[in-house]
Design a binder for these strands. Structure first.
Length: 408
DNA sequence: TGCTCACTAAACAGAG
DNA sequence: CCTCTGTTTAGTGAGC
C-alpha cells in the first residue's frame, strides 16, 4: 500500500470526523479552558457552512501560500469582518476564528468572488500546513494552551473541514505527531479533570518560537523579512527568551487544567534520550532549510544538543528522522532503535514498548519566572502579530482601538 | 542522487 | 469487550 498523498475525502466511508466534530468542538469550546458556549456556537458553523461541493485544484492550492491568508489569517483576527466591525473578542486567545457566522466567505467579500470560491475550495482541501503546525495552532488556540487529543481533533475539524471528510488516518497522524514531535508535550491531566481519557498536550515553550517561525516561514514569507533569525543561532543559554511564546500557561492558572506552577503537573523530558524528536533534526538544520519543512527552523534555541549532529544516519526515514540526535548522541534510546532489527514488532515486552513510567518521556519541569510572563506575552504578541495572529491581549487592545477609530 | 522531512498506515499496549 | 489514546515502526513521496 502506498502512501496516500493527500487523503482523498471520498476514501472515507464513515465520517467519524464529522461525528466527532461536535464532540471535538465541544471539547474545544468547553474543554479544558472552557469557552463560553455562545462564542463557541459562533465559531462552530464553519465546518458546516462550507460549500462542500467538488473541490477542484487541490494540489494547486496546497502549495499556494495565499492559503494561509485566505483561510487562516482571515479567520484569525486579521480579518474578520468583525474586528473593526465590533465583532466580539474572540473566544480564542489567539485567533478570532469565525467569530462571524459569515465566516471566511464574508471575510473575503472584499476580494473577488473567485478568490472566495478558491478559498472555500482550499478549505475543503488539505491544508498546506503540517500536522505539527495544525496541532500547534490548536493548542495555542485553547485558552489553557493545552488540549487533549480529542480537542485537537476537534479544532482541526473545525477549522479544516477537509478532515471531516477525510479518512480517519489523519488522526493517527496527529497522534503520531504529538508523540514524536518534541514540540509537543504531554501533560497529565489528573488534576481537575474528572474522567478524562488521555493526557493534555501543550506546546513546549522552548519550541514555540520555532513553531511560530516555521509557521511564518511556511506561510508568511513576507513576514519572514521581519523575523530574520539572528546571525548566530541562539543557543539555549542565550535565546531571547522574552521572544518566546509561552506554550503552556506558565502561571498557575486556576482555570487551567495545566498548572505549570505545580512541579508535578508538567512533566517535561529531562533526558534527551527520552525525547522522540519529530523536529530536533530539523531544528538543527534550521539555518539551512526553510520553507519546505514546517519545523525546519526549530531548535535554534532548543534543548537539543548544541553540537552539530552527525549527518549520517543509520537509517533514514520516517519519523526516525526526527530524533536523530538522541539516537546518535545517546546511543540506543530504546534498546537499539538505531539498529533496526527485523524482529517482529512488539515481539518482546522488553523492546521499545516497555512502558516508561509517565508515558513516553521522562519529563522535565517547566519553570519560567512569573515576572517574565507578561514580558513573554508581549513579545509573543508581537511575534504572533507578525505572523498574522493575535493574542487575546492584542486582540483586546486592537479591538478597542479599532472601535475608537470606527466611532470617529 | 542522496538525504531529510512530512505523511500515512499499521500494530500494539494500556486505560477508561 | 470495545474504544480511545499513546507509542513505535515502516514505507513512500516531495523538496532540497
Amino acid at each position: 500500500m502506498g502512501p496516500i498523498v493527500g487523503m482523498s475525502p471520498d476514501k472515507k466511508a464513515e465520517t467519524p470526523g464529522v461525528q466527532e466534530d461536535r464532540v471535538g468542538l465541544r471539547g474545544v469550546c468547553g474543554g479544558p479552558g472552557t469557552l463560553p458556549e455562545a462564542e463557541c456556537g459562533a465559531a462552530s458553523p464553519l465546518a458546516t457552512s462550507l460549500d462542500r461541493g467538488s473541490g477542484g485544484s487541490e494540489d494547486e492550492e496546497l502549495t499556494n501560500l495565499n492559503w494561509l491568508h485566505e483561510n487562516l489569517l482571515q479567520n484569525f483576527t486579521l480579518g474578520g469582518p468583525g474586528e473593526a466591525g465590533g465583532a466580539q473578542p474572540s473566544a480564542s486567545p489567539l485567533f478570532d476564528i469565525e467569530g462571524d457566522p459569515g465566516g471566511p466567505q464574508n471575510a473575503s467579500s472584499s476580494s473577488s468572488s473567485s478568490s472566495s470560491s478558491s478559498q472555500r475550495d482550499s478549505l475543503k482541501s488539505k491544508p498546506p500546513l503540517s500536522f505539527s503546525l495544525l496541532i500547534y495552532m490548536a493548542i495555542e488556540q485553547s485558552p489553557s494552551k493545552s488540549l487533549p487529543v480529542k480537542d485537537i481533533y476537534g479544532w482541526i475539524l473545525q477549522h479544516f473541514p477537509y478532515f471531516s471528510s477525510a479518512p480517519t488516518g489523519w488522526k493517527n497522524s496527529v497522534r503520531h505527531n504529538l508523540s514524536l514531535n518534541k514540540c509537543f508535550r504531554k501533560v497529565e491531566r489528573s488534576l481537575g479533570k474528572v474522567n478524562g481519557k488521555g493526557s493534555l498536550w501543550c506546546v513546549d515553550p522552548e519550541y514555540r518560537p520555532n513553531l511560530i517561525q516555521a509557521l511564518k516561514k511556511q506561510h508568511l514569507p513576507a513576514v519572514h523579512a521581519f523575523c530574520t533569525p539572528p546571525a548566530s543561532p541562539p543557543r539555549a543559554s542565550s535565546p531571547p527568551r522574552h521572544l518566546f511564546l509561552q506554550g503552556c500557561s506558565l502561571k498557575g492558572d486556576p482555570d487551567s487544567p495545566l498548572d505549570l506552577s505545580r512541579p508535578d503537573s508538567v512533566l517535561v523530558s529531562s533526558d534527551p534520550k527520552q525525547d522522540h524528536n519529530y523536529s530536533s533534526m530539523a531544528l538543527q538544520r534550521c539555518s539551512s532549510r526553510s520553507s519546505s519543512s514546517s519545523l525546519s527552523s526549530l531548535d535554534e534555541g532548543g534543548p537539543s544538543p548544541s553540537h552539530a549532529r552527525p549527518r549520517a544516519r543509520p537509517r533514514r526515514a520516517g519519523s526516525e528522522g526526527f530524533h536523530s540526535d538522541e539516537d546518535s548522541d545517546l546511543g540506543d534510546e530504546r534498546g537499539g532503535r538505531t539498529h533496526p532489527q527485523p524482529t517482529p514488532r512488539r515481539s518482546s515486552p522488553s523492546s521499545s514498548s516497555v512502558k516508561r513510567p509517565a508515558g513516553k518521556r521522562a519529563r522535565r519541569e517547566v519553570t519560567v519566572k512569573p515576572e517574565l510572563d507578561e514580558e513573554l506575552k508581549e513579545a509573543a504578541g508581537s511575534l504572533l502579530h507578525l505572523a498574522g495572529i493575535r493574542t487575546s491581549m492584542e486582540l483586546n487592545k486592537h479591538s478597542a482601538k479599532s472601535k475608537k477609530l470606527n466611532r470617529k
